[in-house]
Simulated scan of single mutants.
Amino acid sequence: MLEISGLRAGYGAVEVLRGIDMHVGAGEIVAVLGSNGVGKTTLNMVLSGIMRANAGDIRFNGSRLARTSSEIVASGLIHVPEGRKIFPNLDILENLELGCYMRGKANRKRNLERVFEIFPRLRERIAQKAGTLSGGEQQMLAIGRGLMAEPLFLILDEPSLGLSPLLVEEMFTLIQRLNQDGLPIMLVEQNVVQSLELANRAYIIENGEIALSGDAESVRNNPDLRRTYLGL
């Protein structure tokens, strides 16, 4: 579904991504892990068309990735950003309907029902202003808004950020459920342990480069990862 080769990107003279190679296949959950400042956000911005790559090739669903954000969304690559980025002064229904502005508008009612089936709490609070929701409910809304666009591929950027341990468990269960329905997911996280329990494969980014990659079990058991990220 997604193939990235030799990707370089940055800000002015500062290069952040230094030759990223990775891929995500159909039906996979692939975790992209790393601490703050290693390039995860820059990678997501390039994939979403918010910033341009300096070099490299990105192919999505067999074709070269479109250049603009609107074209990328229309192609089915949907990014649920870090920090949720909901519209706090709009209610839940209005936020969800904005999710199908570029893609999925013809199936708005059907997609709303699917979102409410996955997130019954959103149906219960359908007229509530998004800014008054709890952190977990706002994350549900952000993912639900992404699902309204009928994604062929979903990037989830730090979905567990700021959630309680109980809600983190609930969020990862949800991600697994979405994947079991056939949706390929790129999970960009700092939560190393639970991401590796969920993912099929993983990439560890350090200083803008892939420092470690492989199937999730081998990455989880790698002594370098355990020493650097888990303190073991």
Rank of each mutant, 00 (worst) to 15 (best):
R125K: 15
R125C: 02
I126E: 12
Q128E: 04
Q128L: 01
Q128V: 03
K129F: 14
K129I: 08
K129W: 09
A130D: 02
A130Y: 00
G131E: 10
G131P: 04
T132R: 08
L133S: 04
S134Y: 12
G135C: 08
G135A: 11
G136W: 00
G136D: 00
G136A: 01
E137K: 07
E137D: 07
Q138W: 06
Q138V: 13
Q138H: 10
Q139K: 07
Q139A: 08
M140P: 06
M140V: 06
M140D: 06
L141D: 04
A142D: 13
A142F: 10
A142Y: 09
A142G: 12
I143F: 07
I143R: 03
G144N: 09
G144Y: 07
G144A: 13
G146L: 03
L147M: 15
M148Y: 06
A149G: 07
E150R: 10
E150L: 09
E150C: 06
P151A: 02
P151E: 01
P151M: 00
P151Y: 00
L152A: 13
L154A: 09
I155K: 01
L156E: 06
D157Q: 07
E158M: 12
E158W: 10
E158S: 08
E158K: 10
E158I: 10
P159T: 03
P159G: 04
S160C: 02
S160F: 00
L161Y: 08
L161S: 15
L161I: 15
L161M: 15
L161G: 06
G162C: 11
G162R: 07
L163W: 07
L163G: 11
L163Q: 07
S164L: 12
S164P: 05
S164T: 15
S164I: 11
S164M: 13
P165T: 05
P165K: 05
P165V: 04
P165C: 05
L166A: 12
L167V: 14
L167G: 02
L167N: 05
V168F: 00
V168M: 01
V168W: 00
E169P: 00
E169R: 13
E170S: 07
E170R: 07
E170Q: 14
E170K: 13
M171Q: 04
M171R: 02
M171T: 15
L174C: 09
I175L: 10
I175H: 06
I175D: 04
Q176I: 05
Q176T: 11
R177C: 11
L178T: 14
L178W: 14
N179V: 10
N179H: 08
N179Y: 12
N179R: 13
Q180I: 08
Q180S: 15
Q180K: 15
Q180N: 14
D181G: 13
G182V: 11
G182I: 11
L183A: 15
P184Y: 14
P184C: 14
M186Y: 03
M186T: 03
L187Y: 11
L187E: 09
L187R: 08
L187A: 09
V188W: 01
V188R: 01
V188T: 06
V188M: 08
